[in-house]
Amino acid sequence: MTSTLIHLSGTILDEDMECSLRDLCVMCNIPAEIIHEMIDEGLIRPRGPEPKQWRFTAVEIRRVQITLRLQRDLRVNLPGCALALDLLEELEELRRHCRRR
């Protein structure tokens, strides 16, 4: 019996991708209210004037997902998550800087 190996191809969340509020909710498996709260906290910033036209990038998807994990695993609240994400980004930047040297 021969079996063919099927290689799955996914969507790359790269710098070009943009998604709507609805896409973001589906992708992160959460209701829109939670996204609204994250926006109010300054944790993510959509482009576009109002919810229907909001666009999110891969960076936002990543920030939402990390926030959900930090909330679940470490019981960090939203302002804490926003702070942690900013610090993590800064740390990442510094690490890159160190590696260059």
């Binding site: 099927i6 290689h7 996914g10 790359i12 969340l13 790269d14 998807i61």
Partner: peptide
Amino acid sequence: SLHITIPKGITEGQHIRLEGQ
């Protein structure tokens, strides 16, 4: 186990989303 295709030119930190997996 999953067999996946890594697209050409992917960069570090990027995510690949595999729907339904």
